[in-house]
Structures are given as structure tokens and as C-alpha cells.
Amino acid sequence: MSKSVEELIEDLNNQDEFVVEAAIGELEIMGEESVDALMSALSHRKKNVRLNAAKILGIMSNPKAIDALILTLRDSNKLVRREASTALSRMGQLAVDPLIDILDDEDWRVRGAAAWALGNLKDKAAIEPLKALLNDESGYVKAGALNAINTIKEE
């Protein structure tokens, strides 16, 4: 008997890495059927569930998840934020404008994650908005913006 989407999401926090990997695989295979539940899981109380949900959504590259992943850039956990940024950088062209829109967020972690993700997307439209971050008070944001601009210009 196969598990429900909800059971698989709870398995994302299992102590046994094989159970976690199996759940990730099942949720990926389910595709569209699991996207809404995975987006909800981005606000789960357990860090590992949020982290793995972001990872799966990135692998699926479903544009429906972009807004939920952007909200996840505010997560209290650094690893969850990083995974959400990585997931967004896999979304392609559809993630560029939403990421540019949050480059002026009040939270330096959100600005930095957006800058790094834009670098991975390599879209020239991001260069000018990224230049504004070169004077940011956060070293993380400045480094992300500089890296992104250089990566995009190399394309």
C-alpha cells in the first residue's frame, strides 16, 4: 500500500535517511499531485520538512511554487533559505522578475538569496537591479550581487 502525500511529507523529517530519500523520490514522481502539499510544507514546524520540500520543488521546477519559495527566503533557518534560493534558481526565466522585485527587501538574507539565485539564472535583465546592491550594508548581499553580475556578464 502506498503512502499518502501527507504521510510522505511527514517522512521528510524521519531520522532514517533511506526513509527520507524514498519519500523525496515518491513526491517527485507524484509531480503536480504533490506540489500544493509541498508548498504548504514550506511552513512546516520541522526544519527538515521545510528544507526537503524546497529541495523537491526545485527539482520539479514547477513555476506554481515561485511565490511560496520567495516567502521561504525569510525562513528562520539558513539552510532552508539557501535551499529555497537554489530552488528558485532552477525555475528559469519565470523566476527572474519575482527575484528582481525582492532585491529591495528589508531583510538582508532575502536580498542576498535573491542576488545569488539571479546569478544562477544568468539573465541580463538582472544586471542593473543588481548593481544597486553593490553598496548594500551587508557583505553577503554585496558578494551575492557582485558574483551574480560577473556570472551574468560571462554568459
Rank of each mutant, 00 (worst) to 15 (best):
M1T: 09
S2K: 15
K3C: 07
E6R: 15
E7S: 11
L8Q: 10
L8V: 12
D11Q: 14
N13V: 14
D16M: 14
E17M: 15
V19C: 06
V20E: 12
A22V: 07
I24P: 06
G25H: 14
G25F: 12
E26C: 13
L27W: 08
L27H: 07
L27D: 08
E28Q: 12
I29C: 14
I29K: 15
M30L: 15
G31Y: 09
G31Q: 12
G31D: 12
V35P: 13
V35L: 13
A37T: 10
A37L: 14
L38P: 04
M39R: 13
S40P: 09
S43W: 01
H44A: 12
H44P: 05
K46D: 10
K47P: 00
K47V: 04
N48A: 11
N48D: 11
V49H: 02
V49Q: 04
R50Y: 03
A53F: 00
A53E: 02
A54Q: 03
L57R: 01
L57M: 12
L57H: 01
G58P: 05
I59V: 14
I59M: 13
M60G: 05
S61R: 08
S61G: 10
K64E: 12
K64L: 09
A65R: 04
I66S: 03
I66E: 01
D67H: 08
D67A: 10
D67I: 07
A68M: 13
A68I: 10
A68K: 10
L69C: 10
I70G: 02
T72M: 03
R74V: 03
R74L: 10
D75G: 01
S76V: 14
N77T: 07
K78S: 06
L79W: 08
L79T: 03
V80G: 00
R81K: 12
R81W: 00
E83N: 01
A84L: 05
A84V: 04
S85W: 01
T86F: 11
T86W: 09
A87M: 08
A87D: 04
S89V: 01
S89F: 00
S89Q: 02
R90C: 06
L94P: 00
A95N: 06
V96Q: 02
P98L: 06
L99C: 08
L99R: 04
I100G: 05
I100Y: 10
D101T: 13
D101H: 14
I102Q: 06
I102K: 05
I102L: 09
L103C: 06
D104A: 14
E106C: 11
D107R: 12
R109P: 03
G112Q: 03
A113C: 06
A113V: 04
A113G: 07
G119S: 00
N120H: 14
L121Y: 08
K122D: 00
K122L: 06
D123N: 15
A125R: 15
A126G: 08
I127R: 05
P129T: 07
P129M: 10
L130D: 02
L130A: 05
K131C: 07
A132N: 12
L134Q: 11
L134G: 03
D136K: 03
S138K: 02
G139F: 03
V141W: 00
K142D: 02
K142Q: 10
A143K: 05
A143P: 00
L146E: 15
A148E: 02
A148R: 00
I149A: 03
I149T: 01
N150E: 13
N150L: 06
T151L: 11
I152W: 02
I152E: 02
K153H: 04
E154I: 11
